Amino acid sequence: MSTPDLLYTEAEEDLRAAVRSLLTDHCPPAAVLSRAESGRAYDGALWRALGADMGAAGLLVPDKLGGQGATAREAAVVMEELGRAVAPVPYLTSAVLAVGALLGCDTGQDAVARLLGALAEGRTVGALAVPLSTAPGAPGAPGAPGATVRADGDGALSGQVSGVAGAAGADVLLVPAAGADGYGLYAVETAETSVSVEPLTSLDLTRPLAAVTLTGAPARRLAGDDRAGAAIGRALLTGAGLLASEQLGVAEWCLTETVRHTKERHQFGRPVGSFQALKHRMAALWLELVQARATARYAADALATDSPDTPVAVAVAQAHCAQVAVHAAEECVQLHGGIGMTWEHPAHLYLKRAKSDEIALGTPGRHRQTLAGLVDLAAPTG
């Protein structure tokens, strides 16, 4: 088995530079703060520029289906930059989770191919209708969450799913449902009057959650019992693996901003960053961040190469990166002193994103439990 390459390629660095430039121009902290306070879900103009104009929405979609034909490594670079900017765009929910679920279906099927093409172009926004807290390998059909929605004999769906990320701004929902024909994955247009998307109060205002209620909603069956479970399971695994890169980006911004602030903030005639206690805290955080980058890159490379170690790599990355992001955000707030506690400073946005990401697609404890099972390590008892 070849050794994974954790270094960034020239093409990946070029992609990073392009995405960072776009976010610097269109998504400065002041703009994110203003949008969060206004209660608006997503920045539509930014998503068009990133997803459609730059083509990021179709990175994981093969070129023959209208996408860019890239891999999870490139998508991970985008996720890092989105984490650095806490950008209010549906990249994780549409370009990763929804696209990932569709790629697990029969892409030769016209309905699947058309929907993939529309998502890749960025003109349609999708969302996988499962709670954001759902971890890969949750109980239910193989590799997929259990269905809370039922399909009747005509294919109409009824039921409710709560805590769905990206539903508020989505054009189409990919809904796992059970019925007489077994477990399946269905596409439902949010414009249907039988579909209700009710926003929920969420900690992270830049990634809102919603409750989806279906009342006899017309739906297209995209995959049956033979493929739906595996497709959704793979999408959740990919999402969890790439979420580690977003958490890395959050941690990087927090450390960079904290170092900058402590260099400029003076007390007793010297920069507070020169105090030994603060230098030790930031050095320790830098070491955590380096480790987080290694685990996130390993997960992205494993996904890109379809390595048999992918489940292990994703579990390791999530178990570690989630907690590093939270720690970095907490240190950022505290080491900024009084200003770090205010709504005027963006530090709270990063803390909320880090805490929200910590329970998204499985908690660190859940991933450690998964890892123990994968490596045949018995959990402690008593």
Rank of each mutant, 00 (worst) to 15 (best):
Ser2Val: 10
Phe275Met: 15
Ala354Pro: 01
Gly184Trp: 04
Ala219Met: 07
Glu13Arg: 15
Cys321Thr: 13
Ala57Thr: 07
Gly39Thr: 11
Leu349Ala: 09
Gln276Trp: 12
Glu198Lys: 04
Ile232Asn: 02
Gly216Glu: 05
Met1Ser: 14
Cys105Tyr: 00
Ala138Trp: 04
Ala329Arg: 01
Pro142Cys: 12
Leu102Glu: 03
Leu377Met: 14
Gly373Gln: 06
Ala228Arg: 00
Asp226Ala: 15
Gly126Thr: 08
Asp152Gly: 10
Ser202Lys: 06
His336Arg: 15
Leu278Lys: 05
Ala378Pro: 00
Pro136Arg: 03
Glu192Met: 06
Pro145Val: 14
Pro208Phe: 08
Met341Arg: 13
Ile359Tyr: 07
Met341Gly: 13
Arg293Trp: 00
Lys352Gln: 15
Cys332Pro: 01
Leu236Ala: 06
Asp5Trp: 01
Val32Ser: 13
Cys105Lys: 03
Ala277Cys: 04
Val130Lys: 00
His26Asp: 11
Pro271Phe: 07
Ala75Met: 08
Ala277Tyr: 01
Arg297Leu: 03
Val172Ile: 14
Val96Tyr: 02
Val161Ser: 07
Ala210Phe: 02
Gln318Asn: 12
Glu81Cys: 13
Gly239Lys: 03
Trp286Lys: 15
Val172Gln: 00
Pro88Val: 09
Ala322Lys: 06
Arg207Phe: 01
Val164Glu: 05
Pro62Tyr: 14
Val188Gln: 02
Val77Phe: 03
Ala292His: 00
Arg84Leu: 09
Met1Gln: 10
Ala30Thr: 15
Thr215Cys: 07
Ala235Tyr: 05
Thr295Pro: 00
Gly146Glu: 09
Arg40Val: 14
Val326Gly: 01
Arg265Asp: 08
Tyr42Ala: 11
Thr134Gln: 09
Ser94Glu: 04
Gly66Gln: 14
Gly83His: 04
Glu74Lys: 04
Val77Ser: 01
Ala167Asp: 00
Ala191Leu: 09
Ala17Val: 08
Phe268Arg: 11
Arg270Lys: 14
Ala302Pro: 02
Ser2Glu: 12
Arg281Asp: 09
His280Asn: 12
Val375Pro: 02
Ala325Trp: 01
Gly117Asn: 11
Thr148Lys: 07
Pro29Ile: 11
Gln267His: 10
Val99Tyr: 02
Ser34Leu: 13
Thr305Arg: 09
Glu358Pro: 01
Gly155Ile: 09
Ser38Met: 08
Ile232Glu: 01
Pro88Tyr: 08
His367Met: 08
